[in-house]
Structures are given as C-alpha cells and as structure tokens.
Amino acid sequence: MTNANAASEAISPAGQTRVWDPLIRIFHWSLVIAFTANALFVEGDSKIHVWIGYFVAGAVAFRIVWGFIGTKYARFSSFPPNLKGASEQVMEIASNRKRLHMGHTPLGALMIYNLLLTLIVIAASGYLMTTDAYWGVRWMEELHEAAVFWAEFSVALHIAAVIFESLRLKVNLPKAMVTGVKEFRN
C-alpha cells in the first residue's frame, strides 16, 4: 500500500510526473546506441568494438553510482528486487486490473538488474579476451557471446514489455524515457 500512496502523492493535477532525470535518459539511450552498434554492426575484433565496450562499462559504472546517490526514481532503493511485487504485477495483468507506477514497476526493476548484470558479464569477458592471459581462449569468447545473446533476448523482451505496458496502462513509456515525464491518461 505504501507504493500506492507514494504514487498518488507524486501525481500532479494534470496527470504528469517528472520521473527520469536527464542523466538517466542519456544513460539509457547512449546504452541503446552502444549496445546495438557492438552487437549488430561493429566487427568483434576491431578497435572500435573495444572502445565502445569500455564506454558501456563506464556507463554501467555510472548507473550503479547513480543508483545510490541519484535522483529519487533513479535510486535502487526506489526499485528493490521484489519477487512478491513482480508476481503481484503478473496477477494484476492477468486479472485485467490496472495500477500505475511512478518509477520502475517490479517487473521492470527485475529487467534492469538482469540487464546491468548481463552487461557487466559482457564487458568483463570482453575485456579479458584482450588480455594476454585470455587471448584466443575459446571459453571466454563463448561466455562473451552467450551473454550477448542473453542480452539481445532480454532487450527484445524489454521492448515487448514496454509496448505492452504502454498500451495496457495508456502511458507512453518510450516517450517518458525521452522527455523524462510520465503522462497518465484515463
């Protein structure tokens, strides 16, 4: 119930709430560009691939720091991993009930932790592949590729879920990640 109270407290009369700060939005979209570039377009053994990888690692490091000291909805404490909340959200979808969330929903939160962890595995294994110790070591390469595949699967699921929730709750979530403002319509 605390969630619902927090939600109603933050909604302005017009049904608009500023949720994502500029750094969160820059983080999100630069990650989209960097990940897409490295996963789909840039050659794996090129220098640019490695530099983009360092950028992703830096972005994830920033996000983790921001999760502790950032704005309200950016903090991990505002979206702790919560399996009970996540299963409630599933029930809510299944039973056609609607509940609005200001920041990340419980399922959304799980996706964020999944993506951050997966990106850490990708960046770490990718870096190790460039070291003398793991140069040309096949299992490290396979770990890197498997993690990328898992990330691609997760991104597809993430996009599908964002579309689904936007339509179901009548909130344009992609737009909110651009403008920073969630607009709730009735």
Binding site: A39, L40, G44, E145, V148, F149, E152, F153, V155, A156, L157, I159, A160, I163, F164, L167, R168
Partner: peptide, 25 residues
C-alpha cells in the same frame, strides 16, 4: 489485440537477435 501485436513485435526482434548470433560466430 495488444497481446497479439506485442507477441508479433517481440518474435520479430528475437528473430533478428538469433540471426545475428548465428552469423557473428
């Protein structure tokens, strides 16, 4: 309708991901 269109969109995305995985190795 929402569910169907979402499923179609996501399977297209997944197809792209799987294809890139096969080609990249």
């Amino acid at each position: 309708k929402i569910l169907t269109s979402t499923l179609v969109a996501s399977s297209l995305l997944l197809g792209t991901a799987a294809a890139s995985f096969a080609e990249g190795s």
